[in-house]
């Protein structure tokens, strides 16, 4: 990518607003995702008390455990932002290092979520046990899928940077993946408080 530098200098400047198409598109997508998670969170809020014969939220949540995995996800936002900073300095080694760390932290979070789901299932909360169960697994599952997609993007990006064939502006691609990653993190900030810390 010999022309990356030239391209970087120019990027965005031939658009009417001077902003990059890709970044504008990503922000629009994130704005739209607010309505998606809003709908899932609201559904959970309506149904969290409808436990039927099954366990109540307070009985199945393991707050200390979830606090740790929330902390892990929060810190992955720091490593992500370090990857973006490295990419902007054209430091490929730093970029791939921090992207890998971010991906691993994300994988830890997803692993924790799987462990948590298994533990809840063993305590009697299946997907179809109650409306609370369905709504809870749907909401956290959607978030988990978003994190997983993010992890796949992070590791793919590492592989692609190593083979140095990112089409277009490398720093921008890292930044876009970063925006998505931070968004997944802020959604969890909300879920952690509204779902876990505030009891039904």
């Amino acid at each position: 990518m010999a022309d990356t530098a030239v391209h970087h200098a120019e990027h965005g400047h031939h658009t009417s607003t001077g902003l990059s198409n890709n970044k504008l598109g990503m922000w629009l997508f994130l704005g739209s995702e607010c309505l998606l998670f809003g709908g899932l969170i609201s559904t959970y809020m309506i149904y969290r008390g409808r436990v039927g014969e099954g366990p109540r939220p307070g009985n199945v949540f393991d707050i200390p455990f979830t606090s740790v995995s929330s902390f892990v996800l929060l810190m992955s936002s720091l490593t992500m932002v370090l990857a973006v900073a490295a990419a902007q300095k054209r430091d490929d080694r730093g970029t791939t290092l921090w992207l890998t760390v971010t991906g691993l932290l994300g994988a830890t979070f997803v692993g924790g979520q799987m462990y948590e789901f298994t533990a809840m299932y063993n305590e009697g909360l299946g997907y179809t046990t109650s409306l609370f169960g369905s709504a809870f697994y749907t909401l956290t599952g959607f978030h988990g899928v978003h994190v997983t997609v993010g992890i796949i993007m992070l590791f793919s990006l590492v592989a692609i940077i190593k083979r140095s064939n990112v089409p277009g502006d490398k720093a921008e691609v890292v930044e876009l993946v970063g925006l998505y990653w931070h968004f997944v993190d802020i959604v969890w900030i909300i879920i952690f408080t509204l779902v876990y810390l505030i009891p039904a």
Binding site: L19, K23, L24, W27, L28, L30, G31, S32, E33, C34, L35
Partner: peptide
């Protein structure tokens, strides 16, 4: 960018 996101 803020406009896009905060509108949503």
């Amino acid at each position: 960018f803020s406009f896009m996101f905060y509108t949503g």
